[in-house]
């Protein structure tokens, strides 16, 4: 059933490389953007809060497939990215694709971080303020570090979702794992084995991600477990 792998495995390797590249860029953009948006969301300025709310509402309320396609067409209309090939990935498709995933993920990450901030007791903020710290310092130095620790599992979920969501980039012609599997399936006139292989690859990637998040969680939780 899986003999085809002998011939087609390089395509899967290429696809996997692309999925990994896209996911890493997407997670990084999502994280940075998420932090930026939650900063706006928790700011004292009404206008900043409105921007953050609108952003989250739009990105969360529309399908990522449409976002990806729109960003790809808009971006390729505005600037020309040379179709350089890296690890079998054509940059003029991979870059807009990864950006689109990151923009989408940023909305979710910001909401996860906001939930984390809300989970920290008001007493922490009051303790900071009563020492004479500014509200900003109190938020960034006292509340946010504790909040991030509380939301590591939720962030892990979001990153895993992003890895799986990256399959929508198939629609803009990124040759990632799903695209490769469909291509191979078309050649073989049988989609089931290639798709099973693709599923296994995603499973391995998401398992690795969840291992990484477990390590992060342990590392951030160290302080809380230390015995006197």
């Amino acid at each position: 059933m899986f003999n085809f792998l002998g011939k087609y495995y390089p395509l899967y390797l290429n696809g996997t490389a692309q999925t990994i590249i896209i996911s890493i860029i997407g997670v990084l953009i999502g994280l940075l953007l998420g932090i930026t948006i939650v900063m706006l969301r928790l700011s004292e300025h009404k206008f900043a809060r409105a921007i953050a709310k609108t952003y989250v509402a739009i990105l969360r309320g529309t399908p990522s497939m449409i976002q990806v396609m729109l960003i790809y067409y808009v971006l390729s209309g505005l600037i020309t990215i040379p179709p350089i090939q890296i690890l079998g990935a054509s940059l003029d498709r991979v870059i807009p694709g990864a950006i689109a995933l990151g923009l989408n993920s940023g909305a979710y990450v910001s909401e996860i971080l906001r939930a984390g901030v809300t989970s920290i007791s008001v007493g922490q903020t009051e303790a900071g303020l009563s020492l004479g710290l500014s509200p900003k310092t109190t938020l960034y130095q006292i509340v946010l570090p504790q909040a991030i620790r509380n939301v590591v599992p939720a962030l892990g979920n979001e990153f895993i979702t992003l890895i799986k969501e990256s399959s929508v980039l198939f629609y803009i012609g990124v040759q990632e794992v799903t695209a490769q599997a469909l291509g191979i399936g078309g050649t073989l006139y049988n989609f089931i084995p290639p798709l099973l292989v693709a599923g296994l690859i995603y499973f391995i990637l998401t398992s690795l991600m969840s291992q990484v998040m477990t390590l992060v969680e342990k590392r951030l939780g160290r302080k809380y477990r230390q015995v006197a």
């Binding site: 007791s121 922490q124 009051e126 303790a127 009563s130 004479g132």
Partner: peptide, 28 residues
């Protein structure tokens, strides 16, 4: 904020920073 630096406050629920050591809580 400057004013509050001159006024110490102790709360019913202590409100120590759980991610900082006792020393770091005091020196922060």
């Amino acid at each position: 904020w400057q004013l509050r630096q001159q006024i110490g406050m102790v709360f019913q629920q202590f409100n120590l920073f759980p991610n900082k050591t006792v020393l770091e809580n005091i020196t922060f």
